[in-house]
Design a protein around this nucleic acid. Sequence first.
DNA 1: ACCAGGAGTTGAACACGTTCAAGAAGGAGC
DNA 2: GCTCCTTCTTGAACGTGTTCAACTCCTGGT
Lengths: 229, 229
Amino acid sequence: MSTVPDTPPRSPKAEQTRQSIIDAAMRLFRTNGYEKATMRAIADEAGVSIGNAYYYFSSKEHLIQAYYDRINAEHAEAAAAALAGTTTFSERLGAVLLAWVDVAEPYHEFAGKFFKTAAEPTSPLSPFSSESEATRLAAIDLHREVIDGSDLKLAKALRAELPELLWLAQMGVVLFWVHDTSDGQQRTRLLVRQAVPLIDRALRLTRLPGVRGLVDDVVGLVRTIKPKP
Amino acid sequence: MSTVPDTPPRSPKAEQTRQSIIDAAMRLFRTNGYEKATMRAIADEAGVSIGNAYYYFSSKEHLIQAYYDRINAEHAEAAAAALAGTTTFSERLGAVLLAWVDVAEPYHEFAGKFFKTAAEPTSPLSPFSSESEATRLAAIDLHREVIDGSDLKLAKALRAELPELLWLAQMGVVLFWVHDTSDGQQRTRLLVRQAVPLIDRALRLTRLPGVRGLVDDVVGLVRTIKPKP
DNA sequence: ACCAGGAGTTGAACACGTTCAAGAAGGAGC
DNA sequence: GCTCCTTCTTGAACGTGTTCAACTCCTGGT
């Protein structure tokens, strides 16, 4: 769930300091927003020196990662709860996506700033970066669970790639969400509610004679394009 | 084509200074990269003071806009040339997308920095922003031309929305491209070459009995979700 | 010619993220 | 106790993007 710490914890004391810095950062991000929460202010709030904050987190961006992890952890929990008792694919996918919108809602205000940072390919916060691999794989696994616990019948090849594709779709939802200025991000919820049944129908169509070959080729393309061999 | 300048030009002299700053920035971005090209260095190269550079461009990010405009202008030209003489949809779409990759190649190194700026929803550089509407509409029109000049036969509703959807696909290519670290962005070119025929096939499948209803609903969803009325 | 007022220009100053040389604290082996 | 080494901690200092009060220059009106 949690990504690899910047520096491996050595003593309990050190781990405690590490946590207090994260807590301070969380508090200030929430109350003051991203820009106002300077490294000096965070270090101050945590009762340590600036240099010490940098001893544990090699950059401000790395500090934000803790924030990301928290959202992801909350989502994993909320999604698990929402998945319990649902069996249809539509219900399950919708539950997971809407759970994310719910969990992320309090963070929407600064989400733009976070997004900006995460968008840069070299940033450790990028959803495609190696630093966030653990988080990414966990999220993909969640979608695998969505599929496995459902009634969906698919060709083996597609079934194998689908979790990653659904995760990509989720990233699309996030992109839409970040730009969504509607009250309570209603438009994003509308998008999810309407798109999910369509995805369901589309997936069930993949077994159609004329469509099948195309799907195989799409899967082949995905495999060609995916991360380095 | 060109977006609104940060400050409206007053005197010819001022416009000249403005241009010399852009030129200096271009030169330093190319030779030194984004971070090394400091505002002080740019101002120095342009023969003006730091404060003066900020008089014309309210931030370093705003300087990038000039780059954005240049890429778009070059692409429009290259795409028009590449489209001449092609008739099949695959050829035409591929030509436009590959032309973009070609045009953008020299800028790939610091594209991540540009992307970071453009990712923030409130940024005028965001491809979804109202400030970049003119550029966006021009790009969408380019895709309309791709379709209109081709042999593709589609339902009217889909045909109407397709240019925007293709533009969205192009944004997806850009996203992939930004993260593509392969030599000369070969992987992006591979993606385009392989994905284009698949898009072609998928579009031709939309007339299939079982698929048709789904496509109609997707078009309906797109219309529901699109920008505010 | 003069003036008023806006356009254009300047560089010192500010706050920020980050680095680093220096030191303090802690523990393992003796 | 002492020594040595690693872990942990410090704050001054650096370079950056950006701001701003003050300045000069230019232009139109009289």
